[in-house]
Design a protein around this nucleic acid. Structure first.
Lengths: 212, 212
DNA sequence: GTATGTGAACTATTTCACAGCT
DNA sequence: AGCTGTGAAATAGTTCACATAC
């Protein structure tokens, strides 16, 4: 089975593929070998047509009248998402959030590794989070080279975010996971994903304020 | 100026209103009093038509030929998002992520307060994160009543997530911010927002895998 | 002159429904 | 008989472009 060339895939489709893959891994552990689109749909909370459409962007992974082989489908999804290889990341910001990210088990389960932790606070440099020594920013090029890092994580206050983002770009990183609640400007070939917890809460309060 | 009744507002619009409001607060601190939709657009990285459309769902907040009054617009947005009142939340899961959330300053800045921290690990109960004592789950009804809590945060492993979500619902919470990487099933009148960091990374690796 | 507010046009995404394969 | 894969239809969301107000 070939994995087709990507034409124009909705971002939401990629998000769901990631959800499917994790759900399928759970099924795989329970020794379930075959599954239909409607069972996946049921398990992750989307429609079965959506599941089939999402998968069909990349190939014909199922068997008509039967469904999908769980193991095979996991392998296709892992390949599509680029998870057949490990990804080394570096983290700037050794505060509470940074510490939570370093110890976040789900990352390792999915093949994501934080291979460098940086901070510009001199009282932190040289101390450790788990076994990771906190480094000064000028060590960044060494770490990027040594571990072939392509992804940077920003877990710092908003005032400092743009400067560190610039540093990421200058050092050749290709993607940024940004936890700072500010819009960072980078060249358009750099992938940026913003994680903003206050925004998520505010979509909740908007809905709740509309109720009672 | 009246804030109009909500008809059918895209979720993405609410997300952007939240972004606008934070950007405007920054301008307000710099003593900027008037701003155009294109300046907002520039600052947050969307189109100016998008800004105007988003605002127009709720009322006519601007002046033709002039723009928007920063202060007034902040007040409208705060009201729309339900941030004119404080929101008390409770947190289940006193691990690293939980600790990061308790100490997350941005929450307080926006009027969100964690007024109870729970865990089912008996070695944690009675210890503290900052000044918050970690409580056993059976104290939940007391805290909800005492602080009029409507929002619960799940920062626990996926295996335990559904059971605690059920407990939230049983105790009358109306919204859940879920950090567990699993689909939780709740009645449809309960608002759920999922924060899944691995998924965000996987949309990045999908894009990067497509490159070199 | 300038910038909003908004229908209309356009683009994107989801759902429908069924032909085709097992 | 059952379930996929997919065009077509429906729905949702964004951008255009301009009349209107200051």
């Amino acid at each position: 089975m070939k994995i087709s060339k990507r034409s124009k895939i909705p971002e939401a489709t990629i998000t769901r593929l990631s959800v499917y893959s994790r759900y399928l891994k759970r099924l795989d552990k329970q020794m379930i070998t075959t599954i239909s689109s409607s069972e996946i749909a049921e398990g992750v909370g989307v429609s079965s047509a959506q599941v089939r459409k999402d998968l069909a962007y990349f190939g014909e992974f199922g068997t008509k009248g039967v469904g999908y082989n769980v193991n095979d489908l996991i392998r296709y999804l892992v390949k599509i998402l680029g998870l057949n290889v490990d990804w080394n990341m570096l983290l700037v910001g050794a505060g509470n959030l940074g510490a939570a990210l370093v110890t976040y088990h789900e990352f390792k389960d999915r093949g994501f590794y934080i291979t460098g932790v940086f901070d510009n606070d001199v009282t932190k440099i040289g101390t450790k989070i788990l076994d990771m020594e906190i480094l000064s920013l000028d060590k960044m090029p060494d770490i990027i080279k040594k571990y072939n890092v392509r992804i940077g994580i920003l877990a710092i206050p908003p005032q400092a975010a743009q400067a560190v983002a610039d540093l990421f770009v200058k050092n050749g990183l290709e993607a940024i996971l940004n936890f700072a609640p500010i819009n960072i400007n980078v060249p358009k070939n750099i992938e940026v994903r913003n994680v903003d917890l206050s925004i998520m809460l505010e979509t909740i309060t908007f809905s709740l304020a509309g109720k009672k």
